[in-house]
Simulated assay, not measured.
Amino acid sequence: MRYGINPQQATARAVPVDPDRVPLRLLQGQPSYINLLDALNSWQLVREAERTLGRPAAASFKHVSPAGAALAGPVDEATARLYDVDAAAVGELTSAYLRARDADPKSSYGDFVAVSHEVDLELAELLVRVVSDGIVAPSYAPGVLEVLAKKKNGRFLVMAADPEFEPPEQESRDVFGLRLTQQRDRLALTPDLLADVQVGALPEQARTDLLLGLAVLRFTQSNSVCYVRDGQTLGIGAGQQSRVDCTRLAGAKVDTWWLRRHPLVQGLRFRPEIRRQDRVNWQIRLVEGDLTEDERARFRQAVEADPGTLSPAERADWLDRLTGVSFVSDGCLPFRDNVDHAHRHGVTSIAEPGGSIRSDEVEAACRELGIALAWTGLRLFHH
């Protein structure tokens, strides 16, 4: 590898546990330690999502957790306009990646991409136009590798995963002179996990979204939660010591995603020289509503006309329109505050393991707020 987690860790190698069973092949570029962790985690996520739900899946990874993940589906006009694609004509695999990347496009800058199906020319040509570090997929259509070779002067990482590869029953890691070994978690994510409905009823779309959320959290650094709507993550919270902080962090990302679709934001007319990522960043800073004086001056230079800002009432009115969001937690909700915060972001369905000492309070909160609640009985911590 180029180096380990940091450049000063100059000696770094990746060695197959079994030389006769290799999970992926390097087709282009030279990966770092983190690149390989992203590739291995993201590939497992999209493979699990596709196997569970039977649709093409994509993930956008940063620092060993997904910034976004999605199934193939409709690309809305906000996303299509940002990435210069025809929403009505975009292919399934490209739609999955666009939906995954647009969940948190600020974080997805320089991402590692994973897709569940063969990469076609449409997706390859899109990847050439966005800032990304690499991709892992089961295969590549004729001509695709030649297109991707143009990106980053041939340093763009391209990896081919073996879709039939199954890892050993035991997995190990070395930490400070100790080798930790455990049984690999092989429990399948099936609709049966959502059978124990404690409150309300789960619509079919909610079941799909909750299963996608479970696949996402299985490969997200814990504590983790995610908000999902129509087969697309809207906010993922990862690696927080407090679960409610994770819920609030991911919820803020949901709000940003939805506010970026407000007519004021969609009406922005950027000057032609403003790059795509800068447009994304200005959209986000505008809806966050706390531009500094210096930022406001630079923003005015980036747009044809300053649209002003959303008033608190306009902001609240728009956020109140978001509904049909599903919420998944990788561990038990320990207090009802997670439910209260999730409700603020359009959540109507929740899946969590259940069985905490205050699960009755969580259940009561769901009844009070009209949120369907399913207990999975399954913890999905990932470290």
Results as ranks from 00 to 15, higher is better:
4 G>I: 05
9 Q>T: 05
12 A>T: 13
16 P>Q: 07
26 L>D: 10
29 G>M: 02
30 Q>S: 14
34 I>V: 15
39 A>Y: 07
43 W>T: 06
44 Q>A: 11
46 V>C: 04
47 R>K: 14
50 E>H: 02
52 T>H: 07
54 G>S: 08
59 A>S: 15
62 K>Q: 12
73 G>M: 01
74 P>Q: 12
76 D>L: 06
77 E>F: 11
78 A>I: 02
79 T>S: 13
79 T>C: 11
86 D>T: 03
87 A>W: 01
89 A>N: 09
91 G>R: 00
93 L>D: 01
93 L>M: 07
94 T>C: 09
101 R>M: 14
102 D>C: 03
105 P>M: 11
109 Y>A: 10
116 S>W: 02
116 S>M: 00
121 L>S: 11
125 E>F: 00
129 R>K: 13
139 S>Q: 06
142 P>G: 05
145 L>V: 12
148 L>K: 05
151 K>I: 04
153 N>D: 14
155 R>S: 14
157 L>I: 10
159 M>Y: 13
162 D>C: 11
162 D>R: 08
164 E>H: 06
165 F>C: 01
169 E>M: 06
177 G>T: 04
182 Q>V: 11
187 L>S: 10
187 L>M: 06
188 A>Y: 04
189 L>P: 03
190 T>K: 01
193 L>M: 04
195 A>V: 08
199 V>N: 07
204 E>F: 00
205 Q>R: 08
208 T>C: 06
209 D>T: 02
209 D>V: 00
219 F>I: 01
220 T>A: 14
224 S>N: 10
225 V>D: 11
229 R>D: 02
237 G>N: 03
240 Q>T: 10
242 S>K: 09
244 V>W: 00
249 L>A: 11
252 A>D: 08
255 D>Q: 12
256 T>H: 11
259 L>Y: 07
261 R>Y: 10
264 L>K: 08
268 L>A: 12
271 R>I: 04
276 R>S: 08
279 R>N: 07
281 N>L: 14
283 Q>A: 05
283 Q>E: 15
284 I>V: 15
285 R>C: 08
288 E>K: 15
291 L>G: 10
291 L>T: 09
292 T>S: 15
297 A>I: 12
302 A>C: 12
303 V>K: 01
305 A>G: 04
306 D>E: 10
306 D>R: 09
306 D>G: 07
310 L>Y: 11
311 S>A: 01
311 S>P: 06
312 P>C: 00
314 E>N: 00
315 R>W: 09
315 R>V: 13
315 R>G: 04
319 L>T: 09
320 D>Y: 02
323 T>W: 13
325 V>N: 09
327 F>D: 10
327 F>T: 14
328 V>H: 01
336 R>D: 14
338 N>D: 15
351 A>E: 00
359 S>G: 14
363 E>F: 01
364 A>P: 05
372 A>Q: 03
376 T>N: 09
376 T>S: 12
380 L>W: 10
